[in-house]
Amino acid sequence: MIQEFNGPVGQVTSGDIHNYNHKEPVSIDGIPTDELEDKRKKYHSQLWVARKRLFLNWPMCIFAINFLVFIWYAVTLFGKLSHGVLGTVEGGVPIWGELLFMIFGLGLPLHLMLRIKRLEGYVIYESRQKIFAIDVELRKRRQR
């Protein structure tokens, strides 16, 4: 068994010491201005891609189409124009059909959209924070 120590040693334990070489976060003070501007452009494009993925994805498309179908069905059903709507003689869908449509046609895509929103929202938040930090540093440098 070999123990590797990366960094200062000062830990006391009765078992193995796992020092995973966690590096200090790099400060943007020492980065040249042109590199900061390049990083800002990179984060800005990453922000744009994340926003695009947030709104243009398959669950969103399926949800939008199913929502339009639901609105069309509700308008025709309640507008007394529903003779033959969705293939039934009475012009309506059985209650279990409506329930299945609500669960699988609207609920499942909405659940998937919320998962995508959580992930992309974090990417958007992180990118905006980094862009803000870079903007602050560039503003400081321009004032000197």
Rank of each mutant, 00 (worst) to 15 (best):
I65Y: 11
D34H: 07
V9F: 05
P25K: 02
A64Y: 14
I116V: 13
K39D: 02
F67H: 09
F78D: 12
I124W: 05
M60Y: 02
W96I: 08
L47V: 05
H22K: 06
Q143K: 13
K39F: 05
L114Y: 01
V75D: 03
S82A: 14
A64Q: 14
L119F: 14
Q11E: 06
L54C: 12
G121H: 03
T76L: 12
I103E: 07
Q46L: 06
P25W: 01
L81Q: 12
G105Q: 05
L86S: 02
G79S: 12
K80L: 13
P94R: 02
Y125K: 14
Y20T: 07
V93H: 01
L112M: 04
D38F: 07
I131P: 00
I116T: 11
L138D: 01
E37A: 04
M113D: 08
Y125D: 06
P25F: 01
L106P: 02
V123M: 04
E98P: 02
G92R: 08
R53D: 15
K52S: 15
I62Q: 07
R51V: 01
Y122F: 13
S45T: 12
G105F: 03
Y43T: 01
V136R: 13
W96V: 09
R40F: 02
L56Y: 15
R139I: 07
V85G: 00
D38N: 10
Q11T: 05
G84H: 05
V9R: 04
V89F: 15
L138F: 01
R142I: 11
C61S: 12
T13D: 11
P32F: 03
S27A: 10
E24W: 04
F63R: 01
Q3H: 15
Y43F: 07
E24P: 00
K52V: 15
G97F: 05
R40H: 02
E35D: 12
D29H: 05
Q3S: 13
R115T: 10
E120L: 10
H111A: 11
R115S: 07
E137R: 14
K42I: 11
F67S: 15
F101Y: 07
G15S: 10
H111R: 11
K52P: 07
L77V: 06
W72C: 09
N21E: 06
R144Y: 11
F5E: 08
L47S: 06
L47E: 03
C61T: 14
K42D: 14
A74L: 12
T76Q: 10
F101V: 03
G87Y: 06
G91W: 01
M113G: 09
I103C: 09
H111N: 06
L138Y: 02
